[in-house]
Simulated assay, not measured.
Amino acid sequence: MLAIDMKDVWKTYKNGIQALKGLNLQVESGEIFSLLGPNGAGKTTTVKVMSCILKYDRGNVKVLGKELPDSCGEILREVGIMPQEFQGFTDLTVRENLEYFSKLYDKEVNIDSLIDTFELKKYENKKLRELSGGYKRRVGLASALAGDPKILFLDEPTVGLDPKARRSLWDIIKGLKEKGITVFLTTHYLDEAEKLSDTVVVIYDGRVVRRGKPGEIIDEFKKENLEDAYLELLKNLEGENNE
């Protein structure tokens, strides 16, 4: 079953910028899916459309089998979102933050289980502003899971973290897949996409230009890793645009 199905989706902003130009995108239930692309390619617009934040001009979008925009109320109860700049409530404790976000979904959620999963027990009564960047990210992820979502949207989940903290969050994200949660992430860390993803899609100028498993894209460009393959792809695309 598809968790997300976007067909021929177009979006033009009021300033005339065409962000999406017939985008087709499918995400399988239970996979870790990475959306890659240079700045301005349409990544943020895509995520905002599928998470009911932004209306599109035309096309067809289904999330969890439900049509947008008519079913956005139902869909928002089934998805979790962690923005790149997660703020939370800095003067509330870790536990209070998680309790607040769980109440937004009006669901019975085991806060103690979330605290244990993200190894936050010794910080649960500390105010959010007292935590390091890595632990604030953990609270952001836990908050996005406070509604027991079927799909989790992560925008640059490990940006700014040191290597140890990044890898710790990678392990947590892998664990979410084992629980059957569909994880949709955008990232500029190509090693992150390579290590975590079942499927990688590259968008460029509002369209999908590559889709495959990380290894398939690496092999296509005869490179050693996903980052080198991705850079070669962008070089080719930029060359075509300049002809």
Rank of each mutant, 00 (worst) to 15 (best):
V208W: 01
W10R: 10
S71T: 09
Q26N: 13
K164M: 10
M82D: 03
G239V: 01
N97H: 09
V201G: 03
I75C: 12
I81R: 03
N15A: 01
S71N: 14
E28A: 15
Y100S: 14
G175Q: 04
N241H: 14
S71V: 03
G175F: 03
R210K: 15
K11G: 09
H188K: 06
L2K: 13
K213S: 02
R137G: 04
N110M: 08
L226N: 06
K62H: 14
D228V: 07
R207W: 06
V49G: 01
K213N: 02
V9F: 06
G175S: 10
L237G: 11
Q26H: 10
G80W: 07
E216I: 08
F101W: 00
A193R: 02
Q84V: 03
Y230P: 01
W170C: 12
E78S: 11
D205F: 06
G30N: 09
K179V: 04
V159K: 12
Y230Q: 01
L114G: 13
L231M: 14
N225T: 06
D116C: 00
L76R: 15
G59A: 04
P69M: 10
R77H: 13
G206T: 07
E224R: 08
R77N: 14
E99S: 13
L161S: 01
G42H: 04
V9P: 08
L234S: 02
L234F: 05
E108G: 07
E224Y: 05
I115T: 05
K103I: 01
Y105E: 11
Y204I: 11
K43T: 12
K48E: 14
N225R: 03
Y13T: 00
G88H: 04
N110P: 09
N15D: 15
D91H: 12
G206F: 12
P149I: 02
P38N: 08
R137D: 02
S29I: 00
V109D: 01
K213I: 06
E119G: 07
